[in-house]
Design a protein around this nucleic acid. Structure first.
Lengths: 195, 195, 195, 195
DNA sequence: TATGAATGAGCGTTCATTCAT
DNA sequence: TATGAATGAACGCTCATTCAT
């Protein structure tokens, strides 16, 4: 019986998410309205909040899997052997994350979970990102003086830096890729040490 | 008479800022309400918007100088010669920027900016940051294979990365400084190149 | 200037109340919706809550004056000289107060002000009621062994008792007037004392 | 088997009531939530409504017996011979009925009722009240010019009037008893008639 | 420059009640 | 009898921002 109800719950939840996806496809993330979601899903407004704490939680649930899809692709593909390959591989992810200012903000806000229990889909993708990037460096033609994890975190830092610049009036003449490349080159293939 | 009017205007503006500062001191940045500011300043709500384009402008005006004060200190001091000195020097700035999640978010929104005239106080500090960091690298025991500006931007990226982790339950067992150090070491004193 | 704004405020407020009155006239008190009020008044929803703490406060403001109108009539007319005259005089007031279950509930809820500062229109009418009833007894063919105020409070108690019975499934075969009459007769023209 | 089922049913019902009583003891009547009741009783929400038509029915079931307990005491005791004795006897009942504004409102809603079979516990107590009060007057040192039932209903009206004043900031300097006494004196021992 | 009433558009809430299983 | 997901329908709120005076 519990299984039966769970199924119904899952169906309703799926209907709500499907409705939201459809709306996003039509008008984008920022323009999504809860009212419209429940209207399309054919549920009561109260039902929405039974399933999702708030609108942002739904966004987390929609954006997270999209990021994951890109990460799946990255994971399925070969590890990049050059900076150009790497930036090329990262671009789809960057494009998704910067498709709307609103989306980038949601991602940043959810990238760090407030509590361990609250690690949502987006926060999880940040962990996966590190893992995937690190795998690239396990056996790659890049620097090896530091751990793969550290390199991965650095890539993440630069990707965010480059994306943030996208929304800055001063820098948007350069593409994310153009900004990212020199960072990664300097980070992953340093020519020489210091003094 | 123009001078007299200007004086009164400046006084009103000063009262508003003072009120805002007082509120920030009491309840923090996020909890600041325009309503409360004008109440304390003894002006009408509309007056607020005569003086500041919007609430963010006021925030900018309050946060910006605080960052600048730290940058002044950095500029007045000697260029750090070691990673430890550098992280030590950066900590006060990091503490300010992470005093509230809200403050970090506001600052992040400007993180890509790099100093042009019509840019606001916070954005300007990002430009200054780059300049100051870059000066550190003009004649320093750190890597010299890339431009000082690029190194500076990298430092900024890593500082942000380390601060962001602060708001993440998963990572906040480590201090910002503990997280920042390996980043900067790997960024500024790479032991060797790749293939 | 303050006067000018106050005038505007008064006008908006009047528009809201007028809209509410119109709605009440059409669909009754209980069916009044805030949404509909602002729609008719041509104001934003937020404006409603600028003027009235909540929907009930508006109800207080609409019902109170209606009660007052009846009290004005009572005050303007001659003091009743018989129980029949008195119940007859009281009926319009009773009819208003029991026109809807919802109205009776609102009146009861607002009849006692929680704080002196919060004495609303309905609460005031309860005070006036006592005053008016008491005036009836200053020079009337009713008992004189107790104060007019006490008699007045008794009348109020019996009126409420009779009205409450109206909403009780068991008693609504009798009219309010039929129930009220024996109470008032016994209260105002006791034939004899006790032992 | 029918008996066994009935036993389980009664146990569930008892668990629900016990849970409700516990909640009332902790947070009062008004703050009781069906959600919390079923949580404590360990049943599903729907089960609540299998046992009780609605929430009010449960309230009725909890408040009614409490009133009845006081009426039992009144019935067991001697009929009051003086106004002081009467108000003294009535106080415990008044205290219960005014323990919360919400409780008073619930009770008021039934105040006009006078005992018929399908009526709920609270309504029944109003019937009992009248009966008990009426018995007091069957052979008592109070007025005899009207029926005992009418006197009883009057007492009820005055008790309610006095209790209502309790919730009014303007009147609550006086205790219920202080307010009730002059009412009952005037009602039960009128010194003289009118014209 | 100063005023402050009005705006606005959607979010989240409420919570007793229903109903298909 | 028991379950618990879903309902519903309006309320109240938020609060920076605008604009006519």
């Amino acid at each position: 019986m519990a299984r039966a109800t769970q199924k119904r719950t899952l169906e309703t939840r799926a209907r709500l998410i499907a409705a939201a996806e459809a709306i996003v496809a039509e008008v984008g993330f920022e323009a999504l309205r809860v009212e419209e979601v429940v209207l399309r899903a054919g549920t009561a407004k109260g039902t929405f909040f039974v399933h999702f704490k708030d609108k942002d939680t739904l966004m987390d649930l929609i954006i997270g899997p999209r990021i994951d899809a890109h990460l799946d692709a990255l994971q399925a593909g070969p590890a990049p052997r050059t900076i150009e390959e790497m930036t090329g591989a990262l671009m789809p992810l960057c494009d998704l994350m910067t498709c709307e200012r609103y989306v980038f903000d949601v991602i940043l806000r959810y990238s760090g979970a407030a509590g361990v229990a609250e690690i949502g889909p987006i926060a999880s993708t940040f962990g996966r990102q590190i893992e995937i990037f690190a795998q690239w460096f396990d056996d790659a033609p890049f620097r090896r003086d530091v751990t793969a994890d550290l390199l991965a975190e650095g890539v993440q830092a630069f990707v965010i830096q480059a994306m943030a610049a996208q929304f800055c009036a001063l820098h948007n003449s350069q593409s994310i890729r153009e900004r990212l490349e020199p960072y990664l080159r300097a980070w992953l293939t340093p020519a020489a040490g210091g003094t």
